[in-house]
């Protein structure tokens, strides 16, 4: 394992990241006034993910950090993904049984 040097991030880099984050916030709010159908979710989540990546890579120094930290972070996200996808797959498949019941009431 490589020891991570404590990187000092330039002020202008931090300010640039901040500006980008604010800009993306404006974009995502603006986009929300248009109905893009199924793409509402895709666009909003893509923008959020870009913002999260900006925070992680620059504010949280992942860009300059040991790869292990990024790996751990991704493992967390991946297992959350497994959990979410399998649970959703099941919930969507058994949902008709709930709907029939609700309609029969």
């Amino acid at each position: 394992m490589k020891t991570s040097p404590a990187h000092i991030v330039e002020v202008r880099v931090l300010l640039a990241v901040f500006a980008a984050l604010i800009m993306l916030t404006v974009v995502t709010v603006a986009v929300s006034y248009f109905d893009l159908g199924a793409f509402n979710l895709v666009v909003a989540m893509s923008i959020a993910t870009i913002k999260a990546a900006l925070v992680a890579f620059w504010f949280m120094h992942l860009r300059y950090d040991s790869g292990l930290h990024a790996f751990i972070f991704l493992v967390g996200v991946a297992f959350l993904g497994f959990f979410l996808i399998i649970t959703m797959l099941d919930a969507v498949t058994y949902h008709p049984a709930v709907q029939t019941w609700e309609q029969s009431k």
Binding site: M1, S66, F73, L84, M88
Partner: peptide
Amino acid sequence: DAARLGMWIFLMTEILFFGGLFCAYAVYRA
């Protein structure tokens, strides 16, 4: 190094902690 690694692992547990709620959100939304 140890402190930062420990913190990152802790942050990962936080992601999964919130993850439960995100999962509930996703299931109900779907």
